[in-house]
Design a binder for these strands. Sequence first.
DNA 1: CAGCACTTTAATTATCCGGTTAAACCGGAT
DNA 2: ATCCGGTTTAACCGGATAATTAAAGTGCTG
Lengths: 201, 201
Amino acid sequence: MSELDKSTEQVILRAARKVFTLRGFDGARMQQIADEAGINKALLHYYFRSKEKLFDAIFKEVMQLIIPGAVQVLLSDLNFSEKIYGFVEKYLDSLLANPDVPGFVLHELSLHPERLLDNIKGMGVDFNLLVGQIRREIELKHIKPVEPDHFMINLVSLCMFPFLARPVLMGLTGFDHGKFNAFIAERKQEIPRLILQSILP
Amino acid sequence: MSELDKSTEQVILRAARKVFTLRGFDGARMQQIADEAGINKALLHYYFRSKEKLFDAIFKEVMQLIIPGAVQVLLSDLNFSEKIYGFVEKYLDSLLANPDVPGFVLHELSLHPERLLDNIKGMGVDFNLLVGQIRREIELKHIKPVEPDHFMINLVSLCMFPFLARPVLMGLTGFDHGKFNAFIAERKQEIPRLILQSILP
DNA sequence: CAGCACTTTAATTATCCGGTTAAACCGGAT
DNA sequence: ATCCGGTTTAACCGGATAATTAAAGTGCTG
């Protein structure tokens, strides 16, 4: 595999990611991906034999893009407040860099949970480890007793939802691109404040 | 238009809603909708001339299903805490009755914001009215000063997101259908508690 | 009965799209 | 120069699917 190979493959993957995340698997067209990559359909199939194969490739890529980075922070040895601030900051940044990935991923997961959930399992996101962390913090009286399930869902909800609702926000309230980004930036303080004051003793 | 007409039309709309919300516009098949309704494709086109027309019909229906009911509570003359508890309770109930509507709506909105946002505008959801309510409560010192934008987004995020992530929850943690519903029921207390303690003086 | 709205059946058209193929081109490596 | 992997071009295939049509049937109503 030559240098050119790699770069073409990358060009294709970038194009595919754009089209797939924008239109979903069912809405994406191989022709559109080829156009976006500046190549032709034939070459697309030369690299990736089928739409499914191409999709699988970018889905893995995209999952690694949103999940693991921010989780590291939660497993570090910062104190609890710092962890929350750190997580939210990192997570929002990675979502800002890929604003339509969350909607894409959740939509595809809801269409084919069984097939796609394996991708998550096999990538080192250990839900139980996080829950264990929280239980420990409770035992140490660093935080009030909370249901770890609700805590995690609350945290992720508050970070991710604005991206899922972005079209509505931008269409209904006068949000433009810049205003939306500023809004998310504000949430780097807003979310930790909301979460923390509910659980700090 | 006879009684039979109406009931057939209703049968079609119910079938279409099921298939569309489950698979999205691009994933939905007219044949599948006909099967689900227990009729044939020809009759589908007899009532709704095209897939687009049928989609428009159910999209309007579905929007009215999630949006306006719960908002009433916020505009009533309950005190602020009661409003929040009431809103969350009502909203979660209507989402529980239509668990895959949120994902469907947000996905379609992100594909065709311009075309679909009109549906929202023309249905009496006055965002500014809600913001006004919040500002008034602040002036009256019923609640601490908050950004209305963040407040509203926080509230909706916490209610809606679990439904968007339901496939993940049910695939990753051992949630089954009953556990999920119980989890949502818990959130009728969890969400107002979280929200309120951040803004009550 | 006759008319009318609704419904079915079955066949057909037109389009879209994923995938394939063959032939040629190009540039770098052997 | 020759070979070869990457690339282009253009045409094509086959299947899926939305949409249409014609013809007949059903059942209610006036």
